[in-house]
Simulated assay, not measured.
Amino acid sequence: MGLALSIHTLFAAIWVGGMFFAYVCLRPTLAGIDAKTRTTLWAQVLHRFFGYVFLSAALLLGTGLHMIRSLGGMAHVGPHVHIMLTLGLVMMLLALHVYFAPLKRLKRAVIAGDVAEAGRRVGQIRIFVGINLLLGLIVIVVASGGRYFFSGFAGV
């Protein structure tokens, strides 16, 4: 259980930390750069980042389900685990959407030299990353404090 929890925590930090860095640090810094360079950079950064997102999602799901099973299943874990799992699955679905829709279109627009379209796709991705970042931060709060927030429930 200790190894699963360590891997789970590490890859949650990688995914949510990566989104925080991109949204809060990188995005405002790139605002002053010309649109063609900015959209090309975003396409390359996001392509690289999504390798870590998919690795993180797979490990988070695998270790999370392993820990739930080790604790006796969903009927034996607290509400905070149900919330974590639900929000985590929503985050994974949003990440898949971004990768297979707006990011794919961003890459096509960059290759075609369509800076306006690439800019629209970066804006669309920004919205989804903002939503996923918010969900990820909520998951961290629930994961770290949930057993105390819901201490009156059985199985906590």
Rank of each mutant, 00 (worst) to 15 (best):
A112F: 01
L85W: 02
T40E: 12
P102G: 13
R147E: 09
Q44S: 05
E117R: 07
G17I: 12
S144V: 15
G155R: 01
H82L: 12
A109F: 03
A12L: 15
T37C: 13
R126Y: 04
A13T: 12
K104E: 10
T29N: 10
R27Q: 11
F20E: 04
H80C: 13
P102N: 11
I111H: 08
F153E: 09
A101K: 14
A101T: 12
G2K: 11
V156G: 03
S151H: 13
L93R: 05
F54V: 02
I125F: 05
R38D: 04
V115N: 10
V115D: 13
G18D: 10
S70K: 14
G146E: 01
A116K: 15
V156R: 01
N132D: 14
I138S: 06
S144T: 15
I131T: 01
I138K: 14
L94D: 05
A118E: 02
G130H: 02
P28K: 10
G2C: 06
I33F: 00
L137R: 06
S70F: 11
T40K: 03
S56E: 09
L89D: 01
A95Y: 07
R120D: 13
F149I: 14
H80S: 11
D34W: 14
L55D: 00
G18W: 13
G155T: 00
I7K: 07
T9E: 02
T40L: 10
L71W: 10
L89H: 01
L59R: 00
L60N: 01
L103P: 10
V77Q: 08
F49M: 09
I138A: 14
M74C: 00
L65H: 05
L103H: 11
V139R: 08
L93P: 04
L89I: 00
R126Q: 05
G119V: 03
A116T: 12
